[in-house]
Design a protein around this nucleic acid. Structure first.
Lengths: 341, 341
DNA sequence: ATGAAAGCGCTAACAG
DNA sequence: CTGTTAGCGCTTTCAT
């Protein structure tokens, strides 16, 4: 038990308590260099008795080594990002690197601030969502001189490394599937696209592929905030009342798609006979629905893992060779809501 | 644009570039002390031209001030915790404090490790989920000499401050509602209780309140991992095949409750006529379901906000007086699945 | 309003 | 295997 001092404990306290020099105490605590079993035990004993916790701030300053990896994402409530984080954790857990998460709320100014804050702690690497960043952000990232992995989206010119899917291609692929199966009157529902570049790109790819076959989106609806499931429900009702001729509804994420699906089933509408549906992401959640929503895997866990692996490899001593640009291929799951008519 | 140096930029670089002493540069960058507008401008110009990002590691060491608040939670995939975080953010955004999140996976040893890691950065405060911690963890927390707020659960003796609901009371309240409405044959489904103390306490409160009226849980089922919605569905099916006499199903969270609800509706079972249902948490998600599941608000956003407010108040200069022990009262929402029979 | 000196707690680099 | 010395990049404190 430590006496209730005001002053926090330092290496010196452990040194005095154990009768071993600060330097050797430091070596024991960091498991670096050779220390005799006897001294080792003495030090460990003293440290744990005092309840000493090393001061990494001093350690980092002295060694100019920081085992932190900055991870910058737009949101935690999106469900997708926690899964990316989880993938990152899977891999970093095997190393001595530690993720530190910053959240931007999809706002470029906040991204800038968060980035600045994180870089001021001199992390060893950065994993950041998206490829669009303000000039200031790009400059900071470049100037930091550390590995930077941009994730989730491969449509763009990366600063350094990049792991993701082509969002445009994802949109295109789904459009092609829809057309192939004979749907022609398509409605779209999604979040506000202004700040979510990935959703926007999927949308662009989607419309372009439709256009190639002379098909245009006939109705669209956007939302923000609130329960996505409820929003999907509401928007679907609204859209079908407005545009009863639609035979397909494309949702920019699975959650609103699920809401739409529940609504349609309740109304006794024939899915996918009368109306086909598709979402995006491949959420676990879909498994519990009455019918499997067509969707497309966004590979988010794998993206996280791959990004972390790139960082870990580049930081290894000696640095390992790795592929710096990884484009994953999302797979369409037709489920029960996308069928040849 | 910074020349592509190997060495990271320091205050000295800005000092030289601007012809102002390091000390004054530091003052400008921290907005502390009086600096003439002219020098100020010169410094800012030089700093941004170089792309200088201050080194907080050095700053923190010199000032022994760190604006970090350690936030330690069991999981990010639980949906509940991101909302707590969001509440914490709401409040800390107004201050210069920054949350740093650590995840324990519900494992005490990991909690210990995460805590150790975080404390080694000398944060200014800790917000940690739950009131059960290993001795080592409690010691570290005590020895750190910083404000500690334990959250989510108020059934226990806090180390310092505490914000939460009484999980036992929450379980009891739901049991009382169920009994009041005339249900007598109750089944329970939930996660493995061993490590989730809050779920366990709710369960205990629940069974005790039932017992008081001579009612016992007649069947129970536990799960772990996988899609909660799908699990709720499967467990419900299983349980009803096994125990068709049940007239009420209590789910330890809304997600599995939603799965159960969807299953029962599909089977054409009369809810709540034949079987009543209730979950726990008060998730947004429920709004989009075909029927509103009875549940109980777990006040998670408010818990986050309150905890953050306590930390902010205690860290203010001068420290503000605040209530250190806050017990929130969860409210039962009867929805459409809990009705007098 | 600005500068100079000292040192935060630790570790690199070397010496023994 | 263990100890000594000299900083890491900044801020505190005190002087000017």
């Amino acid at each position: 038990m430590s006496k209730k001092d005001k002053r926090p404990l330092t290496l010196r306290d452990v040194s005095e308590a154990s009768g071993v020099s600060e330097m050797t105490v430091s070596r024991v605590l960091r498991q670096r260099g050779d220390v005799s079993e006897a001294t080792r035990a003495k030090v460990l004993e003293a440290a744990s008795e005092l309840g000493y916790v090393p001061n990494r701030i001093a350690g980092a300053l002295a060694s100019s080594r920081v085992n932190l990896i900055a991870v910058i994402i737009p949101s935690l409530s999106n469900l997708v990002f926690p899964e990316v984080l989880s993938g990152i954790n899977d891999v970093l857990d095997e190393t001595d690197l530690q993720p530190v998460v910053g959240v931007t709320g999809y706002q470029p100014e906040r991204e800038e601030r968060v980035l600045y804050e994180m870089l001021s702690w001199r992390p060893s690497g950065v994993i950041i969502a998206g490829v669009e960043h303000s000039d200031a952000s790009r400059n900071m990232l470049t100037a930091a001189g550390i590995p930077v992995v941009e994730i989730m989206d491969s449509d763009g010119k990366p600063i350094d490394a990049m792991v993701g899917i082509s969002q445009r291609r994802a949109g295109r692929k789904m459009a092609e599937a829809i057309l192939r199966f004979g749907y022609r009157h398509v409605g779209f529902m999604g979040t506000q696209l202004a700040l979510d570049h990935r959703a926007r790109k999927r949308f662009e790819g989607f419309t372009q592929a439709l256009a190639r076959e002379g098909v245009e989106i006939e109705d669209r609806e956007f939302y923000s905030g609130g329960s996505a499931l409820a929003k999907g429900r509401e928007m679907t009702q609204l859209m079908l009342e407005r545009s009863p001729e639609l035979d397909f509804l494309y949702y920019s994420n699975d959650m609103i798609g699920a809401g739409g699906l529940l609504y349609l089933l309740e109304q006794g509408i024939d899915v996918p006979g009368q109306i086909g549906l598709a979402g995006f992401n491949g959420l676990d959640l879909l498994e519990g629905l009455p019918r499997r929503l067509a969707t497309m895997d966004s590979c988010r866990r794998e993206i996280g893992q791959t990004a972390a692996r790139i960082i870990a490899a580049r930081l290894a001593d000696p640095p390992q060779e790795v592929e710096n640009h990884v484009t994953l291929e999302p797979v369409v799951t037709y489920g029960d809501t996308l069928k040849r008519r």
